[in-house]
Amino acid sequence: MIKLLQVLIDGTLVGLVYGLVAISFVVIYRASKIVNLSQGEVLVFGALFLWTFTFGVKALGYDMPLWLGLLVTMVACVGFGLLLERFVFRPLIGQPAFAIFMASIALLVMLRGTAQLVWTAETRPFPAFLPGGALQLGPFMVSTKLLIGALFTIALTAGLHLFFTRSRRGLRLAAVAEDHNTALSLGVSVRGAIAVAWILGTVVATFGAIVFLSGRIVSLEVASIGFKALPVALLGGLESIRGAPLAGILIGVGEAVAMAYLDPVTNGVASNVLPFAVMIGVLLLRPQGLFGWKKIERL
């Protein structure tokens, strides 16, 4: 029993990290109707920027305070997001979904190559932003880092939800998410909204990197979290900010349970396969996900 509860706690916390990365899919999809498959690589770029502006500069003999490194990283992320939007995806606006899909795969490979070229493939330590160790709560162990990350995800979700439903800027983005032509007729800059969405997506992905990697090792393999978050985004609904963390918990718990009980029997396959089995199930049974926008059809 205690083992099961522990598994549930771990699953929930890890799931919320997936949810955080899934939010980065969602904000981009809402504005531009693009599912960026290379979001995992974007996250790795965020992580590598952060390494560069902390340990990287330190190795060169400059000492940058952590907060400044974080700030510079965020600025770099904004630039990086804008770059992707401007030179890869903006020219593809209005192209068939398949073209955009293929472009995001091409981008995935290119980003991987670029990362290897610039930073080489060696693994690096990641600065420990969040305290390591674990809290002892009764019989349970809770990773402090993941707990802070989980709380951050929940706060970010609530904040983004308020932003999209209350603030003017957010409503503009919501209008663009609904329909580009209608948004344009209301005087909303569609290009501007998409650019903002990419900035948000890149920054959120970097937050995901910070939570996920704090005190761990950065390598190009980390990008696979992008593929873990994709089923989460689909399950929650590609338009739904609030769906992402909830779906993250579902998938995280499922994965943790599978890891604890099925993996010993299946040579560790079950937990890896589960999220994608869920993904196919979602696409077959409820393509709009749990909280996504169902196309409103009236008779």
């Binding site: 439903t165 003017r168 409503l171 503009r172 919501a174 209008a175 609904e178 329909d179 032509n181 209608t182 007729s185 209301l186 005087g187 909303v188 338009e239 926008w293 409103i296």
Partner: peptide, 28 residues
């Protein structure tokens, strides 16, 4: 911004937003 506002044909409300949000976006 010059003050020409067009209501498109085909009842293009922002479907998934509330009526209030639709009205607020008009004045954005």
């Amino acid at each position: 911004d010059l003050g020409i506002v067009q209501v498109l044909e085909g009842r293009k409300v922002l479907e998934h937003l509330t009526v209030e949000q639709n009205l607020r976006i008009g004045a954005h």
